[in-house]
Amino acid sequence: MSFEIENISYEIGEKTLEIKDYCQSRNKDYSRLIQKTGFEQTHHTSKSYQDFFGGFLTNKLNLKSNDGIILVNQSAQEIIPGILPKLFLNLPNIESITTFQISDGCSGFVKALILADSLLSSANFNRIHIICAEKYSDYFHEDNESLMPIFSDAISVTTLRKGAHYRITSLDTINNFIDYRKISVDASTSLLSMEGSNVYGWVTANTVPQIERVLLENDISTKDVKSWQIHQASQVMVGGILERLKIEGEFIFNSSKVGNTVSSSIPISIQNSFGTSNDLSQNGYHVLSGFGVGLTSVVAVLEASR
C-alpha cells in the first residue's frame, strides 16, 4: 500500500544543556566528547508527562473521524491504565479514535510506520498519527556524564494519510533479546544504563550487513538511495554505519543541536532534512534504520514517486 506524509511536528525539552559548559564545569574535555557524540546540546524537561507531552498534543493534534493513533513510548511508569489515557485525556474528538501503543525505543518509529502503512490499507483509517514520546531523563541523574550529554526528552507527531507518494518496499528486523540488558533500566535503582561500546559493536556488526542485505535483495545499490534516515544515536554511530556502507553525507547526521531523542530521532531528522540533499521527499528509494533498545535493529526501504 502507499501513503503520504501530511505533517511532522516535534518539541524537545525546555531546559537546554550546553555540552561545552557541562564539561567545563566538570573539568572534562568537551571537544573530544562533542567530536564523538556529535551533540553540542541536549534538552530535558522538568514537566510531567501530562504537562509536556499532553500539552504538546493538545496544541498540535487535530483529530478527525477515521483517524488512528500509534503511540511509541517506553519510559512512562504508569502500569494500569498505562500512559495513553492520561496523555490523550484532553484531546478534542479522542472519544472515537482507535489507539495503539508500541513499547519500543529507537526502532519504534520504523515499526510504527510499518503498522501505520498496514492500517491505512484498510477502510477503517484515513490518517494515522505516529506519536513518539520519551522522557529518558527520568532515569538518569544530572551528574551522569555518560547519558546526560546524549539523551534528550522529546515528543514528535508524524501524520500519515492515504496517498500514493510513499510505498514500503521491504522490511527487515534483527532481534538479539539475549542482550537486552545492554540498554536497560535497573529495576532496583530505576536508573538507565547503556553499554555504549557493546551497542556500537552490535550495531556495526548487524545493522550494516542488514542494510546491505535488504538493498541487495531488492536490487538497489547505495547510489540509488536518495536519502538515509538513520537513528541519530550519535555521530560516531551514524558515521560508523555510513563509513562501512561507503556513503558520504554531511547532512545525514543533523542532530547536533537536538540530542538523541530515541524514537523521535528519525522523524525529527526527517523534518530537519527537508531542503537538504538528504530530503525524504525526493523521488526514489529511502532507507530508514532504527536500532538500539532490545537489542533490535529494523530497516525499512521506502520508495517515493509522484
Partner: peptide
C-alpha cells in the same frame, strides 16, 4: 569514548572482520 575509537580502528584495519568479534567490544 576511546573504546569506540579502538573498535573503529580495529574495524578499519581488518576490513570490518573485527566487527563480528564480540570479545573485542
Amino acid at each position: 569514548l576511546g573504546q569506540l575509537s579502538v573498535l573503529a580502528t580495529l574495524s578499519n584495519l581488518t576490513n570490518k572482520e573485527s566487527d563480528k568479534i564480540e570479545d573485542l567490544r
